[in-house]
Design a protein around this nucleic acid. Structure first.
Length: 599
RNA sequence: GAGGCAAUAGCUCAGCUGGAUAGAGCAUCAGAUUGCGGAUCUGAAGGUCGGAGGUUCGAAUCCUCUUUGCCUCACCA
């Protein structure tokens, strides 16, 4: 089965693998026929095709071990036999040549047709978009801040994971809705309100010259100081919550005012870091949702009532605990609300998947939530997914608000920006970059987002300030820098410099090992996007982009473009540089790293 | 105590459904620019993949046990 033309356009390298699986499967069948054996062979898509560890070994490698066992022959022998059969297969000859190397069948692809196909794809408008999830609707909930303090480093990891995931899913063809579930009610909110009532003196953020979310956060910290001297203040906060729930006008008024301050401040942080949402849920609107669902579940016997009136569900049969779903006073809990939200969301926009980007400390909660929804008869409960990410720790240990070891999001971006600015100035590039502050901030985002995304989501990570501020090596700014250099070549060409305009571009001129190696790297983008989307893991894309940038860097040191004496090669390499630039640009956009034309 | 996640180079991390000599970056050492941006490149050194068994032609990867670390096990969110 030879892949269709439009598929070849969108995923050049993946389709080559598919094509070769089919060729090998055919060769196996032929081998069996020749030997007069009768046995069932593996399906073509079950054949493992990998990439040889070294480029000299070819473009694709197929281990013969599984077949050796099946055919009761040595793997080297099988490789040899298959190579001969494939050499005689007329369909394979246009696609490349297979050579037996030890127990492996290594394929050298026919470069000339591949080169033009890859280049063609990489320079066409759809590059960086795939269809692997087309027709899918995915909801992604992330960020979910509290409205009593500003965002911190942990939120930055959450935000970029959620934002990047949303973009990757869209790039893979899915229809995505991103949701921010604002936690704007509860005892923690009342605490900052109470401290403000005591110490705020009616001042506004502007009066104190503070960003509005930082202003509110200050009072949250002050509450904890008050508590030291005045233990009774906790009860007062509780009382404030009761008044809030009762709709007390004075309390609601203050609540509204402080909430707005925080949300305005947080919105600024989202804007500067490039995070966007399609929808906002406010807990103050949704906190009573889910009660009726629990009551229905009570009727159907999914839940049971304790003698004190509280409602529970027993999960001991699946190794979990019993869990409360309604308080004895009939009020709802976190999980009650989440139950209601999930149903509401599915009613309003039936999705194929709902992803909660929430810290791994809540794994138990989501396990219970999903299980409860399933028991209540919602068959879409299996489409819910908790994307649990690990904590961001500091060299000194865990971040703790009370100990003042929290790394504030805005402060971090400011700090890294200042370093980037100093770096630009140290190199005397102020005039080259244009808007100095804007570019410095984009470099800072590149550094921070890449640092946070480079680690697989599930893992806890260490945030080492010194290392994260570095712009060298495996970092976001390194990738940005390679993008800037590629752009620089194209810019010079555009300005009339170099030999490329004297020649004629021909992909066939790029069949040398180093040009070919770089173009193969480029060709991997669509597959990586699909893999990142399937695994819901932006880190695989981050790793790919670093590899591409690094490959480009190695390549262009040895391979002149504008200065190439062979004008046709110069013109062809210019296309290759364009393809690299476009791939970096498309890929970086998906992981929230600004592309820079110069830096 | 129960459940979950993790452990790979001095440090921070990759290692896709088991496959060819376990890879990067940082740090260390040694080099490279009369050429398209040196925030770069090349090289050296650095590993009993926490430990012990098992499955397999083959294990960092799968299974069991074990050690260590983190998280959770609220009528908080």
């Amino acid at each position: 089965m030879v892949p269709r033309a439009h598929q070849l356009r969108s995923r050049p390298m993946a389709d080559m693998k598919t094509a070769w699986k089919a060729i090998v499967a055919r060769a196996l069948a032929e081998y069996v026929r020749q030997k007069g054996l009768s046995l069932s062979l593996p399906a073509a898509d079950g054949i493992v095709v990998e990439r040889p560890p070294k480029p000299e070994l070819g473009d694709l490698g197929i281990p013969m071990f599984p077949f050796a066992k099946l055919l009761r022959a040595g793997p080297n022998q099988v490789a040899q036999a298959l190579a001969e059969i494939i050499a005689a297969d007329p369909e394979s000859s246009g696609l490349g040549a297979a050579v037996a190397e030890g127990p492996y069948l290594n394929v050298r692809l026919a470069r000339r047709p591949e080169l033009s196909r890859i280049l063609d794809a990489a320079l066409s408008p759809g590059w960086g978009k795939t269809q692997s999830l087309s027709g899918h609707r995915v909801m992604v909930e992330f960020s979910s801040p509290n409205t009593n303090k500003p965002l911190h480093l942990g939120h930055l990891r959450n935000n970029i994971l959620g934002e990047s995931l949303s973009r990757i899913l869209r790039a893979a063809g899915a229809e995505v809705r991103s949701i921010n579930h604002i936690n704007d009610r509860g005892i923690h909110i009342c605490k900052s309100m109470l401290a403000y009532m005591r110490l705020g003196g009616g001042r506004s953020p502007a009066d104190e010259g503070l960003k509005s979310d930082h202003f509110v956060g200050k009072y949250y910290v002050l509450f904890n100081e008050l508590k030291e001297k005045e233990p009774g203040i906790e009860a007062e906060a509780q009382d404030l919550l009761v008044r809030w729930e009762a709709g007390d006008a004075e309390v609601r008024d203050l609540w509204q005012r402080m909430r707005t301050w925080v949300l305005e401040g947080i919105a600024q942080t989202y804007a500067r870091t490039g995070v966007q949402f399609d929808l906002y849920d406010y807990e103050s609107d949704t906190y009573e949702l889910g009660k009726d669902i629990v009551l229905k579940g009570l009727e159907s016997g999914v839940f049971y009532r304790e003698s004190d009136g509280s409602v529970w569900c027993d999960f001991e049969d699946i190794g979990l605990d019993t869990k409360v779903f309604l308080r004895k006073d009939g009020t709802s809990l976190y999980i009650t609300q989440d139950l209601g939200c999930a149903v509401d969301r599915h009613d309003s926009w039936p999705y194929d998947r709902l992803v909660y980007v929430v810290g791994n400390e809540q794994q138990y909660h989501f396990k219970v939530l999903f299980e409860a929804l399933g028991r209540l008869g919602y068959d879409w409960a299996r489409d819910l997914h908790h994307l649990a990410y690990g904590m961001v720790n500091l060299p000194s240990g865990r971040m703790k608000t009370r100990e003042g070891t929290v790394v504030d999001a805005d402060d971090l971006v400011d700090e890294v920006s200042a370093l980037a600015k100093a770096e630009i100035e140290a190199k005397g590039r102020e005039d080259l970059v244009g808007n100095l502050d804007a570019v410095a901030e984009k470099i800072a985002l590149g550094a921070i987002h890449y640092y946070l995304l480079q680690v697989a989501p599930a893992k806890d990570m260490l945030f080492d300030p010194a290392a994260s501020l570095s712009f060298n090596g495996d970092t976001g700014p390194y990738i940005q820098y390679m993008g800037a250099r590629a752009t620089s070549i194209l810019r010079k060409h555009g300005a009339g410099e170099g030999n490329a305009r004297k020649g004629k571009a021909d992909p066939g001129k790029l069949s040398g090992d180093s040009d070919w190696a770089l173009l193969r790297l480029v060709s991997g983008l669509p597959e990586v996007i699909d893999a990142a989307a399937a695994a819901m893991d932006p880190s695989v894309l981050a790793a790919y982009l670093y590899g591409l940038a690094s490959g480009f860097s190695t390549w262009y040191r040895e391979n002149p473009v504008l200065n190439c004496a062979d004008f046709d090669v110069a013109a062809s390499r210019l296309d290759l540089v364009s393809a690299v630039k476009r791939s970096l640009e498309a890929g970086l956009a998906l992981i929230g790293i600004p592309f820079l034309e110069s830096m």
